Deep mutational scan, measured.
Amino acid sequence: MDVFMKGLSKAKEGVVAAAEKTKQGVAEAAGKTKEGVLYVGSKTKEGVVHGVATVAEKTKEQVTNVGGAVVTGVTAVAQKTVEGAGSIAAATGFVKKDQLGKNEEGAPQEGILEDMPVDPDNEAYEMPSEEGYQDYEPEA
């Protein structure tokens, strides 16, 4: 019985440690998101679009440190934060509304985080759909 109880105690310690790591990862992701939003706020009209992409990228980098179902929630929060940063930029006159959601080359930025393969159960990952990809044929 002692062996059984000791095993359960060790398992509990492992769960607590994993929860603490997840909590730490979420806190880091939130900190990076805040950094990115402050970065966007300090940019001029020309830099705002690039700044919004930076927020998304920093958040995406930190999301990889967070495991399990938390990833889905962090990704949703990050996307809403990026959308909010863009709205703030438009409201303050840093950028025109028609410039939001495009990178410096004018290509749409939507789907940055949505296409990231995420499995809350950590069982399997699927690649994003290939609808947006084109076949590449090298020139002879």
Rank of each mutant, 00 (worst) to 15 (best):
M1K: 00
D2T: 03
V3M: 07
M5Q: 00
K6H: 02
G7Y: 06
L8Y: 02
S9L: 11
K10Y: 04
A11Q: 00
K12S: 04
K12T: 14
K12I: 03
V15E: 00
V15F: 02
A18N: 00
K21C: 03
K21E: 00
T22Q: 00
T22S: 10
T22F: 07
K23G: 01
K23C: 12
G25A: 15
G31S: 12
K32E: 00
T33S: 08
K34I: 10
E35F: 15
G36I: 15
V37W: 15
L38Q: 06
V40S: 00
G41K: 02
G41C: 11
K43R: 10
T44H: 01
K45G: 03
G47A: 15
V48T: 02
V49P: 02
G51I: 14
G51D: 01
V52C: 13
V52S: 02
A53M: 09
T54N: 11
T54K: 05
V55N: 00
E57Y: 04
E57D: 06
K58R: 11
K58I: 14
T59V: 10
T59D: 00
K60I: 11
K60F: 13
E61H: 04
Q62W: 05
N65T: 07
G67P: 02
G68T: 12
T72K: 07
T72W: 09
T75N: 08
A76Y: 14
A76M: 05
V77P: 02
V77G: 03
V77I: 12
A78G: 06
Q79F: 03
T81V: 15
T81D: 02
E83N: 12
S87F: 06
I88R: 03
I88W: 14
A89P: 03
A89R: 08
A89E: 03
A90V: 13
A90I: 05
A91D: 04
T92A: 13
V95Q: 09
K97V: 15
K97A: 09
D98F: 14
D98I: 03
Q99K: 02
Q99V: 14
G101T: 07
K102P: 13
N103E: 08
E104C: 02
E104H: 06
E104M: 14
E104R: 14
G106W: 11
G106P: 11
P108K: 08
Q109C: 07
Q109D: 09
Q109V: 11
E110C: 07
E110H: 03
I112V: 12
I112Y: 05
D115N: 08
M116R: 05
P117C: 11
V118W: 04
V118E: 08
D119W: 03
P120W: 06
D121V: 05
D121H: 10
D121G: 11
N122R: 15
N122L: 08
E123I: 10
Y125Q: 11
P128V: 03
P128W: 06
E131H: 08
G132R: 11
Y133M: 08
Q134C: 10
D135T: 07
E137D: 08
E137N: 04
E137V: 05
E139T: 03
E139L: 05
A140P: 12
A140M: 07
